[in-house]
Simulated scan of single mutants.
Amino acid sequence: MTSCILLALKRLASLSVLGVLFWNLGFLLQSSHIPAGGASTRDKPLSILIWDLPFNHNLNLSGHICATGRHHKEGCLLTSNRSWLDQADVVAFHHRELQRNRSRLPRAKKKPGQNWVWVSLESPTNTKDLAGWNGTFNWVMTYRQDSDIFIPYGVLVPHLSDKVDIPKKSHLVCWVISNYHRTQKRAELYRELSRHIKIDVYGKASKKPLCPACLLPTISQYKFYLAFENSIHQDYITEKLWRNALLAGTIPVVMGPPRANYEQLIPGEAFIHVEDFGSMQELATFLLTMNDSHYQSFFSWRHRYTVKLYDNWQERFCTICDRYPSLLCGKVYPSLEDWFQNERSGLPGGP
């Protein structure tokens, strides 16, 4: 029995002379749920329909995918077969495909208690056409920590190690960039910093494209990596930090949300923030004059943690299975645009 039914019982409790009976029954049902990370007591698997596969990726959603491989979530089924619309418990809509094929959205929910999830990993700056979805979605699934279903680009997981191996360094600073626009903040900072220090630039926007298998081995040769986000938003901390820098074994020089926001996810001594310096000349001097002992200290976190990337869409969608028992059924976002564009006032370092 799902949390939707629990909510209904609680509402009945406030209206009926049998309120105490209903409340106690609801409490007993709630106590029968396994906490997040396991499956709830259900007669059949939780079914999740992926309306459009993100970026047309072939996810090979064959049966109980969340109970196999590295997902290990029993009682949860993913499918992209739209004929399941009338029986799916949850329907997930990835925004990129949604905004391109708006007419293909189902007219209404086909099953009582069915919940619709809006999914996106893009920042508000790069997300368009939100105004037309008022009152459409029950839950949001994004990189924001205040999402109903939080899907970060990466996390640090506990991992004790006596020895930390740092890749051998032969170069100083590099940047990998696919889409370069001169008006972006990151482009402005790069131009200013490059006046004071040599920066090797790779990627589609440069004359040095990298094959996927070449990315990490190339970056690992550098002491510092410019993990500059394409836009600055609450919690918008992408693979530029997690994969390109931390996983590659180099020190990230970050440009994105304030330092305090980064420190909610990684230790403060694991990165350098551009806002720690009064100018790009000061930052360049800091990078050029750092001694070996100071450099090694930026890797102390690796004695306690290791990097886990969330770059697999199967795994991301299986996160719904974990969160489902604790999600509020019947909730609706009156304005998706208001929620996504108006970030929380408590953004670290903000007003």
Rank of each mutant, 00 (worst) to 15 (best):
T2F: 08
S3V: 07
C4P: 08
A8S: 10
K10S: 09
R11G: 11
L15Y: 09
L15T: 06
S16Y: 03
L21S: 11
L21C: 14
F22D: 00
W23R: 14
W23I: 07
L25A: 14
F27D: 13
L29A: 13
L29Q: 08
I34G: 08
I34E: 15
P35H: 08
G37H: 08
P45V: 02
L49D: 03
L53R: 13
L53P: 08
N58G: 04
H64W: 00
H64V: 08
K73N: 12
S80I: 02
N81T: 07
R82A: 04
W84L: 00
L85M: 12
D89P: 05
E97G: 12
Q99W: 10
N101E: 13
N101F: 07
R102I: 03
R104M: 05
L105R: 06
P106E: 04
P112F: 07
N115H: 09
W118C: 05
L121P: 00
N126A: 07
T127H: 06
K128Q: 15
K128R: 13
D129A: 15
D129L: 12
G132H: 06
N134L: 09
G135S: 04
T136N: 05
V140M: 08
M141S: 02
Q145E: 14
D148F: 04
V155C: 00
L156R: 03
V157Q: 11
V157H: 09
H159S: 15
S161A: 14
D162F: 14
S170C: 08
L172Y: 07
W175S: 02
W175R: 02
S178K: 15
N179I: 05
K185C: 13
A187M: 13
L189G: 07
L189P: 03
Y190C: 05
I197L: 10
K207H: 11
K207C: 12
K207A: 13
Q221G: 06
Y222W: 02
Y222N: 01
K223L: 04
F224G: 02
L226S: 02
A227G: 06
F228W: 06
D235G: 07
E239Y: 04
A245Y: 04
L247Y: 14
L247A: 13
L247I: 10
A248L: 01
A248Y: 01
T250W: 06
T250H: 05
I251Y: 02
P252V: 00
V254T: 10
P257Y: 06
P257W: 07
A260F: 00
A260L: 11
Y262P: 02
L265H: 15
E275N: 15
D276S: 15
F277A: 03
E282Q: 15
E282S: 14
L288H: 07
M290S: 07
N291Q: 06
D292I: 08
F298L: 01
F299V: 01
F299Y: 02
F299R: 01
L309C: 09
Q314V: 14
R316F: 07
C318E: 03
C318D: 04
T319R: 13
S326T: 09
L328A: 12
Y333F: 15
P334N: 08
P334E: 06
L336H: 03
W339H: 08
W339M: 08
R344W: 11
G346M: 13
L347H: 11
